[in-house]
Design a protein around this nucleic acid. Structure first.
Lengths: 205, 205
DNA sequence: ACCTGAACACCGTTCAAGT
DNA sequence: ACCTGAACACCGTTCAAGT
C-alpha cells in the first residue's frame, strides 16, 4: 500500500485509464455538468489527449457511458417485473412504464445521452443496438404474454411495443424538458394515469 | 432600384437585420447544418457581433426560430382538424396525431430546437409558453368534445392531453433519432396504428 | 444608433515528439 | 505502449473602438 502510494507520481499512466475515464464521465453527468472530453480528463488528472488512446473520439466515450445506462435501465425494468410477478398483464405493463420513467427522471443526463442524436445517428456501436433490442424484447415479451393469456387484443406486437415505448419515452422527455411538471413522489401515480387509456385500449373486448 | 444597388456597399447595416438573421437561421436548419451564431451572421454577410444588437444571445435567436416553428405547427394542427370537420372524435384525434408527427418529421431541426433543453430550461420566452399553451388547448378542446359527445370516457382532461402529447412526441422523437424507422409515405398509417390502442382506450364503454 | 476588431475562455481533434 | 505539448479550426461572449 505505501509502495503504491509512493509510486503514484512516478508514472503518468493510470493502470486502468479507460475505466477511470468512464467513471469520471459518470460523475460529471451525475452533477448535471457539461460532459466534455477536456473536463473528464481533467478530473482523472491526465492530459486530454490521453483519452484518444482508449476512445476513438468523444462519441465513443459517450457510447461507453450510454452502455452503463442501458444496463441500469434493463435491471430496473427486470426488477419491476420481478416485483409484479403474479400480477395481471395490465399491472405488469404499468410497472414497466413506472420503472422506465423513473429511470429517466433519476438519471436525466444519462437518459439524454442514451437517446440523443449523437449516439443514435452513429452506426459504430453495436453494443448499444443489442442493449436497445433487449429493452424492446422485455416489453415485447410482456405484450406477448398479455395476448397469449387472452387479456390483450391480438394486434401486431411490434406496433404495440413501439406505442408503449413512445408513450413512456414521450412522457419522460416532456418531463425532462419541464413541459410536464411532476413532483418526484407523484411520478408513479402520474405515470399510471398517463398509461391508463393505452392499457385500457389493450384489453380484449 | 439602381440607386439602392449603388447604396448597397456604402453602408454596413441591413435595414432589417433581425428578420434577415432569423431567415438565415431557418435556411441553416432546413439544410440540417450546424446552427451557430457565427454561421448565421456569415450568411447574412455581417460581423457575428452584430447579432447582439438584435438578440440578447444565441438562445434568443433560437427562440425566434422556435416561435416560427410553433406557429407552423399550430397551423398544421388546425388544418388537420379543418379537414376532418365532421368526422367523429376518434378520427379527429387521429388526424391531430398524424399532423403532429408529420410536422416533426418534415422539420426535424426545427422540432429539436422547439423541444430541446436550451429553450425549455430558459424562462425568458413567454411567447413560447403561450404558443405551447395554444397547442395544448387545441388537443384539450378535442378531448373535451369527445367527452361531451359521450364517445370518450370521462376522465381528467389534463392527463388525457398529456398522454396524447407524450405518445405523439415520443413517437416523433424516436423516429427522429431513428430508433423507429418509417418510410415517409407510410407515416400516416403507422401513426394511426400507434395511436389506435390509446384511442380505443379513450372510448366510453 | 449600429456595426466592427481584437481578445478571452472554452471546445474537439491532429501532428510530432517525449519517456 | 502510453502519454504530452503545441497548434489548428472552430465556438459564444465581452470590451473598447469606429462611423
Amino acid at each position: 500500500m505505501p509502495t503504491r502510494a509512493r509510486k503514484k507520481r512516478e508514472t503518468y499512466h493510470h493502470g486502468d485509464l479507460s475505466n477511470a475515464l468512464v467513471a469520471a464521465a459518470l460523475e460529471v453527468i451525475a452533477k448535471e455538468e457539461q460532459l466534455t472530453l477536456r473536463e473528464v480528463s481533467r478530473r482523472v488528472g491526465v492530459n486530454h489527449r490521453a483519452v484518444y488512446r482508449h476512445f476513438a473520439d468523444l462519441t465513443a466515450l459517450l457510447a461507453a457511458v450510454a452502455e452503463q445506462g442501458y444496463r441500469q435501465l434493463l435491471v430496473a425494468l427486470e426488477d419491476a417485473l420481478a416485483s409484479a410477478k403474479k400480477a395481471p398483464p395490465e399491472k405488469r405493463m404499468e410497472a414497466l412504464a413506472c420503472a422506465y420513467v423513473a429511470f429517466a427522471i433519476d438519471h436525466p443526463a444519462h437518459y439524454r445521452i442514451m437517446f440523443g442524436r449523437r449516439l443514435n445517428e452513429d452506426g459504430r456501436f453495436n453494443v448499444l443496438e443489442d442493449l436497445v433490442l433487449k429493452a424492446f424484447t422485455i416489453i415485447d415479451t410482456e405484450v406477448a404474454a398479455g395476448i397469449e393469456s387472452g387479456k390483450f387484443v391480438s394486434r401486431p406486437r411490434r406496433e404495440l411495443v413501439f406505442a408503449f415505448w413512445s408513450l413512456a419515452h414521450g412522457f419522460a422527455s416532456l418531463t425532462l424538458v419541464r413541459r410536464i411538471k411532476v413532483k418526484r413522489v407523484l411520478v408513479d401515480p402520474y405515470v399510471r394515469q398517463i398509461v391508463a387509456p393505452f392499457i385500457a385500449g389493450l384489453r380484449a373486448l
